[in-house]
Design a protein around this nucleic acid. Sequence first.
RNA 1: CGGAGCGUAGCGCAGCCUGGUAGCGCGUUUGGUUCGGGACCAAAAGGUCGAGGGUUCAAUUCCCUCCGCUCCGACCA
Length: 568
Amino acid sequence: MRWTRTLVTTLRDDPQEAEIASHKLMVRAGLIRKLSGGLYTFMPLGLRALQKVAQIVREEMNRAGAQEILMPALQPAELWERSGRLAAMGPGMFKLRDRAERLMALGPTHEEVVTELLGGEVSSYRQLPCTVYQIQTKFRDEIRPRFGLMRAKEFIMKDAYSFDTSLEAADASYQAMYDAYTRIFKRCGLDARAVEADTGDIGGKWSHEFMVLADSGEDGVIDCPVCGYAANQERAERKVAEANETCGAVEEIATPNVRTIDDLVAFFACPAERFIKTLVYVADGKPVVALVPGDRDLNEHKFKRLLGAKKLELADDATVQQVTGAPVGFAGPVGLAVPVYADQSLKGAAGRITGANKADTHITNVDLTRDATVAAYEDLVIVGGGDMCPRCGKPLQVKRGIEVGHVFKLGTKYTEAFDAAYLNAEGQRELMVMGCYGIGVTRTLQAVIEQCHDADGIAWPVTVAPFAVTLLLLDPKDAAVCEVVDTLERELQAQGIDVFTDDREERPGVKFKDADLIGCPIRVVVGAKGLAKGGVEIKLRTSKDVAIVPVADAAADIVARIRAMRQD
RNA sequence: CGGAGCGUAGCGCAGCCUGGUAGCGCGUUUGGUUCGGGACCAAAAGGUCGAGGGUUCAAUUCCCUCCGCUCCGACCA
């Protein structure tokens, strides 16, 4: 392909809207253009790279035995009512009405559609197991679209769904997808790892996320360097020792205007972990209280899961006043009429300081077991670096990660809602057991750039590069140079190699800079000077070495280099 | 939605505080000199100063409302 015949406009300056490297580079290299918040056009170079990623996904899905289908993005909302997710998704789902005023939705995911579909198609155990997938545009009315393609309102997802006769069989389907994911991210040149994850709204019991480690990642990843335990920070657990403390009688202390943990630390001259933070929440309309050590934050995901609540939010000031009888800042666990849950690290805690449920007052020498009624001691805090690994007890590390894929074991949550049953060998109806598996294809593309770039631009892995080769035509008016370029292009294309030729009337410096920015793995320079020195110049994007190769050997040399890169 | 900031030419920005209707760099067009790591000279095109309202003789500038965008939190591939 020739640059002068292609819509590729590179930018010298970083776009004002972009914050992270991959987003800046995608805009600067002319891969994407923004239409509006969270909505992007793929330009020719960006689309080529996207299609490379999609093709890798497709090949590995097929290899894992999944069948490609394509479901409608536009779906009747009634389907979502049946699964109960119309409410659960809430404003996160794009909704509209057709001319008959029927409520429709733009699919944010496809569990409902696929379960309805397979429920009708599968009637016998002989048809199982069955895994289907699609690569399709999804719509989510994100509260805050961010970082270009990382969190967009419209994005391309590969979603796969497995249907099995039993939990054991479903485990095998899950493992097949897990393995396929590992291969997909490796082939994309990504350093991705699977971590234990929270299941969120999709539901189900168990899930793994595939994380690309990057400082710009939106998720915290907890990682044990000793035993290999890895989990999303939302789910990560820790090992704690029980407190087993004792103390004297409770004492009231006047603490006018001392509300926050920082205030308390200053007032009592005592470390934050000696305080008990009392948090009032409202779970599905009912107030509940969570206790965590003063130096820790509550993990709302864990609390929500423990309560089995659909909705959990921090109580407003009026509710706090009602529950504790005191203004915000003086809540404590003693004498509350609502259920109280405490972090496991507070089991046996005594001699602690907490709110007195009375304005401008705290109490000391609190023994939780003696003075309060705690419904349960459970793991409730956000695990951080330095906490102990739940498996081996060694210190954990925190890293940042980009979630590029997620695999779930769903069980029968959806097959039950849609009565998706089959007849087993004994002729009895049984619900199919499901799994679902997503890859953010557009996000994966950006993650590749986030991981593969330097100060000069993108450094594509050969497997997803929009072109394997950029050919710089340095002297477009020199007939000999043009002929070499024509021949090389032909020879490489005959071998199935994508070549992007910079045939613009630009000075060499401009072409070098743009070639680095766009970042194709191999750069070939054809110019009068080079030819005089004996041939064309071949350089890898990731190396400084330049090889001068005779024109006659150039094509073979390039092909060999690409093969070598594909091997890695 | 809560908090912070921004909106001036295709892109990146200045001007606004202290009103007198716009300027710089990049890019684009034309001509010339250049030509191996983002050249130089000359000329030119390109702007409802986000939208609406208010104050004023006069608003890009001051005030109000709305819209859009970006960043920090809850959602997620």
